[in-house]
């Protein structure tokens, strides 16, 4: 009945959605942020630990949400490990582009391998109401890197 939705819900998405990796509190994190999508109730806390050389030594998260948002956060924590802050930001920008358009013309050769790991999420571009599910984790990462503490898909003060 739903087979044509396998592009969106690939096995790797269902797997990471059901059993998200790095789903834990990071006690010795030096950066953290909370991400909220008030429209659908998705919520996550993200922790990042940086190494002395400034690269991301570890990233972990906890939260609740749909399969897309949980899988995206899970894949993100795996992908950004060992990256510099700038590389992580570039990945986030490229990922958002991919989630919205389905393509990734700006994919840098240096990060092509990382982007390939994230391509199972490219299918969301056909579902405008679900793009925010996929990008919430990356918005939250930006907030953590900026020291902003909070990211919301809707913005504005409560």
């Amino acid at each position: 009945m739903f087979d044509e939705l396998r592009d969106l819900y690939q096995d790797i998405i269902l797997d990471h959605g059901r059993k998200p990796r790095n789903f834990r509190r990071l006690e010795d994190a030096d950066l953290a942020a909370r991400g909220d999508n008030p429209l659908c109730g998705d919520r996550m806390e993200l922790w990042v630990k940086t190494a002395p050389d400034g690269t991301i030594a570890d990233a972990a998260f906890q939260g609740r949400g749909c399969a897309i948002s949980m899988a995206s956060a899970s894949l993100m924590t795996e992908t950004v490990r060992g990256k510099t802050r700038e590389q992580a930001r570039t990945l986030g920008e490229t990922f958002r582009e991919m989630a919205m358009t389905g393509t990734c013309p700006d994919c840098q050769a240096s990060l092509a391998g990382e982007m390939e790991r994230l391509t199972p999420l490219a299918g969301v571009h056909e579902f405008p109401s679900r793009v925010k599910c996929a990008t919430l984790a990356w918005h939250t990462l930006n907030a953590a890197l900026d020291g902003a503490g909070e990211a919301s898909t809707e913005g504005g003060e409560p």
Partner: peptide
């Protein structure tokens, strides 16, 4: 499935249901 994932599936076969907290967060 999370309500939003379910809603995406049901939509594909023509079924419109509401997903979320239906403007009643305290009740949820």
């Amino acid at each position: 499935a999370h309500p939003h994932d379910l809603s995406t599936l049901l939509d594909r076969v023509g079924i419109c249901v509401r997903a979320g907290r239906h403007c009643a967060e305290p009740l949820h």
